[in-house]
Nucleic acid binder design. Structure first.
Lengths: 148, 148
DNA sequence: CTGGTTGCAAATGATTTGCATCCCA
DNA sequence: TGGGATGCAAATCATTTGCAACCAG
């Protein structure tokens, strides 16, 4: 598991560059967020980290997730009234948001990855990434509707 | 204000088509959501509707917003841990989401409006709309950072 | 050392739920 | 009339905050 160590080193650097302290809690949380596929919620990250570090508190996870989001390391994924979910910036991918259940599905679409940064967005602030957001109704909800 | 009546008629039809009852509450809420520029939160819609209909209750607004979202008439705009906000589907526009404050800014970009629907998304469910989501840090937050 | 971080517990706020009443279809 | 819709209040659940103890730099 030399790979694990190399990753950790990389996260440490990212934290230092952001001007925040490197703590074991933060490293564990980052590890978990990066490992998690899909869009983990705060609670899920908390549960996972708690296995390795039972003493960690829920609001440390809250605070760290906010810190990581401010660093641009993770991004909140908007869904409906659901709890906030995040994704680590793994690879270029896009989102399909279901209007009914609020679930966020990932999909890849290489043809659309190279979206130019819209000029109009530059006027609003510093752009860190661009992706496609598709809205619709997912299969699960379509089937549920059909049943009724 | 013949225009207002024509709009209302149109909303009634949309409700009927969705198979739900047409009530004064729902019409008032739709009216407000469509009128509101930006991304009104549930509370803001509630306050606005309450002016015309003081007896309306907060959770009627909650329930109706969910109904409207399921109908595809409005869409939740994901932001960070903030309360959920919605936008009516007015005109084609895109979103800039600030990673720090969670604010969602609208911008228009006609060149990008004609995004083809990605095939990969079709596999996930019924697609109702496609737009660009830009992530970054807004001017306000950039300035705040600079001060520190 | 010492200021940023954490853990804890209490506070806050948004969202949901159960139920009796009401009203569109 | 009859079932979906509403209003109300209580219940939940996510998220935040104040503060003392702690630890990385």
């Amino acid at each position: 598991m030399d790979d694990g160590k190399r990753m950790t080193r990389c996260y440490e650097d990212a934290l230092r560059k952001a001007g925040v302290k490197v703590t074991r809690q933060r490293l564990e949380i980052i590890n978990e967020v990066v490992r998690a596929k899909g869009h983990p919620s705060i609670g899920e990250v908390f549960d996972a980290v708690r296995v390795l570090m039972p003493s960690i508190s829920l609001d440390t996870v809250y605070r760290t997730m906010r810190t990581l989001a401010a660093m641009g390391m993770i991004h909140p994924v908007g869904s409906s009234g659901e709890r906030v979910r995040f994704d680590a910036d793994h690879s270029p991918h896009h989102h399909f948001l279901c209007s009914i259940c609020g679930e966020a599905y990932d999909f890849v679409c290489p043809e659309l990855d190279a979206i130019p940064v819209p000029e109009q967005a530059l006027a609003i602030g510093l752009v860190r990434g661009t992706r496609i957001e598709v809205r619709g109704v997912c299969r699960k909800c379509l089937e549920k509707e059909r049943e009724e």
